[in-house]
Amino acid sequence: MAKRLKVANPARCIGCYSCMMACARTWYDTISLKNSRIDIQTKGGIETPYAQIVCHACIDPPCMRACPLGALTKRKGGGVNLNEEICDGCGNCIEACIMGAIHLDAEKKAVICKHCGVCPKFCPHDVLEMIEVEDSGEIKVTDTGPVEDTNPVSPTASHKELYGEKESGEEK
């Protein structure tokens, strides 16, 4: 079953950078914000809400079309897979992605979200989620049954009750 990362509740972000640190240390052996595939941005310092910039898992990815070498191919569930061997750092994909979700690393290779699912495990505020999608990347519509009022989860639940049960953040 295909999955993709979704910025589900952007307004809940506390700007802790846990997601960026997690992405960077998982995919680059680094302790930094460098080369994180997701970027937490502030527009007016922390007085204004945070923006989470990350690949949107396009169904028909413009970055792929823009790549002259064919280094980007369609990913199951939306977005792209990068063949680092082929990528020569031309930067055309950066131009094509109006989300601003791509940058180059020190080796001049494109850095694009792999929708790997690590960062949501380190988001303490339900901003980031992995959602199930069709292989094409289309949103999956399933038979839901009756809908419960789930928002807010429980105004009296403690943080521990809300998050304590969740799957551990241990990385793959």
């Binding site: 506390i14 700007g15 802790c16 950078y17 846990s18 640190m21 922390i46 380190f122 303490p124 505020h125």
Partner: peptide, 10 residues
Amino acid sequence: RVSCAGCPIG
């Protein structure tokens, strides 16, 4: 609520 950079408490 907001956080210091690097703190998941907020």
